[in-house]
Amino acid sequence: MEHRIIDQQLDLLRDKLLLLGGMTEKALHRAMQSLMERDSDLARQVLEEDKIINQMELEIDRLSVEILALQQPAAHDLRFVISVAKITPILERIADHATNIADAAIRINDEPQLKSYIDLPAMANNAAEMLRTALDAFTTEDAALSREIIKQDQKIDASYKRVFNELIEIMIDNPSTTASAAQLLFVAKHLERIGDYVKDICELNVYLREAAFIKHSPKI
């Protein structure tokens, strides 16, 4: 196979996306850690690093447009650039949710601690694991694995319902916990949304591999 000018740019695009993916994973991990360990300094770091993530999104946008305009990719090359251009804002939004979790942590950390965070750590682990696997599946263009991850989103949705009900009960039983419990409800919702976003990434992985749009389709 001959070396093509476009290969260099596509490699660069892949590297940038994976770097963004890594930063997003780190943001989610640290945001949850700041909540669990009541570490507001760590939460503030998450907020600070979100600015870098936003810059990375712009860089990837610019590079994608440049490749489309100057290299006029076709077939797999085209699908690759389109997938990256669509996955990038999804990662940025996941990072925004991580930032919101960090924000919630800062608020809660000043309140007395609730007895437990119930299912939240497990939910966060599920979301983080899904994200990590989705990025692996993007790298290896593994459509079968991507379809598996899509199914896992149901687990997060189920956890969300459970956490929601439990937090409502806590609030009813002990109204003084309402402020903290409400923040935790937001955290649960952010994690639930992250699961949805990872699903979107996996759908794009399938597009990259198979040129099939499975979004909004009953079949996955």
């Binding site: 196979m1 090359d77 085209l78």
Partner: peptide, 19 residues
Amino acid sequence: MFTNPDEKLTEDYITGRFG
């Protein structure tokens, strides 16, 4: 043909992979 050709040879040609 230009988004997802059936043949590997076609893909190689339209993406400039011919040596």
